[in-house]
Measured scan of single mutants.
Amino acid sequence: ELIWEQYTVTLQKDSKRGFGIAVSGGRDNPHFENGETSIVISDVLPGGPADGLLQENDRVVMVNGTPMEDVLHSFAVQQLRKSGKVAAIVVKRPRK
């Protein structure tokens, strides 16, 4: 059984690379294997702001206090874009 651990990460936006993450998932883009609608970190740019803080497959729980459960992919992207220079991101990942 999976035990999820929650992490809060504060990312500083890089002028060229943004937050250095890509997200997939969302209500309109469920996971191809299990139908899960979570917003998921799909890519972490090496050397970017999120490197060492976020991991691929982290589930995004909140962005700047806005819940990311059962939202559209575009909504999640929009929340990240409009967060200015700093984003507080809450993620969960299975305990190893």
Rank of each mutant, 00 (worst) to 15 (best):
S83T: 10
G25R: 00
E1N: 15
G47I: 00
D51R: 03
G65H: 07
I41L: 04
E1A: 12
S74Y: 09
L54P: 02
I3F: 13
R81P: 02
G52H: 05
S24G: 15
V44K: 01
A50M: 00
D70L: 04
A87R: 02
E56N: 06
N29Y: 06
L72K: 11
V63M: 12
H73W: 11
S74W: 10
H73A: 11
D14S: 10
G25F: 00
W4H: 08
E1F: 14
I39Q: 00
P49S: 05
G18Q: 11
P30M: 15
V60Y: 01
F32Q: 15
H73S: 12
R59M: 05
K92P: 00
S83N: 07
V61N: 03
V40I: 14
V91R: 01
A22G: 12
K13H: 11
V23N: 03
D58Q: 02
G25Q: 02
I89Q: 01
Q78E: 14
S83W: 04
K13M: 09
V77E: 15
V23A: 01
A22D: 10
K13F: 06
S42Q: 11
M68A: 00
P46Y: 04
I41N: 03
P46F: 06
P67V: 11
I21G: 01
P94M: 11
S74L: 08
V71G: 03
G47C: 09
V61A: 12
N57L: 08
A76T: 03
L2H: 09
G35P: 04
V63Y: 03
G35C: 05
L45P: 03
P94D: 06
S15E: 09
V60W: 00
L2V: 06
K13I: 05
K16L: 10
R81S: 14
M68Q: 03
S24Q: 15
L80M: 09
L45F: 15
G52F: 00
V71M: 05
Q6R: 12
V23P: 01
D51Y: 11
E36W: 00
P46T: 15
K82E: 15
D43P: 01
N64P: 00
Q78A: 13
K82A: 08
P49Q: 03
G35M: 10
P94N: 12
F32T: 13
R27Q: 13
V44G: 04
T8Y: 15
V71K: 06
Q55L: 12
G52I: 02
R93H: 03
K96I: 11
A50K: 01
V71Y: 02
V9M: 07
F19V: 02
I89W: 02
H31N: 04
I39S: 01
S83K: 07
T8A: 15
V9D: 08
G84L: 08
S15T: 15
M62N: 10
R93V: 03
F19W: 07
V40P: 02
K82R: 12
S74M: 13
T37V: 09
G25P: 00
G84R: 13
R17A: 08
I21R: 00
S24C: 12
D70H: 08
W4I: 05
M62D: 06
G47P: 02
V61L: 13
L11R: 01
G25V: 03
Q6M: 14
L11P: 00
F32M: 06
A76N: 01
V44P: 02
G18M: 14
Q55A: 15
S38T: 08
R17E: 15
G65R: 05
G20M: 01
E33S: 12
H73P: 08
Y7S: 10
H31E: 07
V61F: 07
A22F: 14
V90L: 10
G48A: 05
R81N: 11
V40E: 03
F75P: 00
S42D: 15
V77W: 08
S15K: 09
K16P: 04
E5L: 06
V63N: 01
L72H: 14
A76L: 03
D28F: 02
K85G: 13
P94I: 06
K16W: 07
G26R: 00
R81E: 15
D51M: 05
P94R: 09
Q78Y: 13
G84A: 13
S15F: 04
L72I: 11
V91P: 01
D70G: 10
E36S: 05
S24L: 13
K96N: 13
H73Y: 09
K85T: 10
M68V: 06
D14P: 03
N57K: 14
D14C: 07
P49L: 04
S74N: 15
A87D: 00
E5C: 07
Q12G: 05
S74E: 14
R95V: 10
S42N: 07
I89V: 12
R59G: 00
S15L: 10
V86W: 09
M62Q: 11
A87N: 02
T37A: 11
M68F: 11
Q78D: 05
L2C: 08
R93D: 00
V71L: 03
L72R: 09
R59N: 04
G52Y: 03
F32G: 08
G48S: 13
R17K: 13
V86Q: 11
V90M: 10
A88E: 15
A88T: 11
I21F: 12
N34A: 08
N34G: 10
K13T: 10
I39A: 01
Q12K: 10
G65F: 04
V40N: 02
I39T: 02
Q12V: 14
R27K: 13
K85P: 11
V44R: 01
R27G: 03
V40T: 13
G18W: 08
S42C: 14
T10F: 10
G35I: 04
L54I: 14
R27E: 10
R59I: 15
V23H: 00
S74I: 08
Q79M: 14
V91M: 04
S74R: 11
W4T: 06
D43C: 08
L54M: 12
G52D: 06
T10S: 12
V40D: 03
L45H: 08
I89M: 06
I3M: 13
Y7A: 15
G26M: 03
P49C: 03
K92A: 08
S38R: 07
V9G: 01
F19H: 04
D51C: 11
V9F: 13
R81Q: 15
A50P: 01
N29M: 14
A76D: 00
S74D: 09
N34D: 13
P94T: 11
K16E: 13
Q6K: 15
E56D: 06
S38V: 04
W4S: 06
R59A: 03
G25S: 01
I39G: 02
H31L: 11
F32C: 15
V91H: 00
P49K: 01
D43L: 11
D43Y: 13
V63A: 01
A50S: 06
H73V: 10
G18V: 04
R27V: 10
G48C: 04
A50N: 01
G48E: 02
E69V: 08
R27M: 09
E1L: 13
L80G: 00
R95F: 08
I41M: 00
R95M: 12
G48F: 03
I89N: 00
L54V: 10
G65S: 07
K96F: 09
F32N: 09
S42K: 08
I41C: 04
F32A: 12
D70S: 10
N34R: 14
P30K: 04
A87V: 11
G20Y: 00
D14A: 10
N64H: 01
D43V: 09
L2F: 14
V63K: 00
A50H: 02
N64G: 05
K13N: 06
S15R: 10
R93T: 02
Q6A: 06
K82Y: 09
K13V: 05
V9I: 12
F19N: 02
Q55R: 12
A76I: 02
L11C: 04
I21S: 00
V91L: 07
K13D: 10
A22H: 14
V60K: 00
E33N: 06
I39M: 03
I21C: 04
I89K: 01
I89T: 01
K96P: 09
G48W: 00
I3H: 06
V90Y: 04
T10W: 07
D70W: 03
V44F: 00
P94K: 09
R59K: 10
V90C: 11
P67S: 13
Q6L: 08
V63E: 01
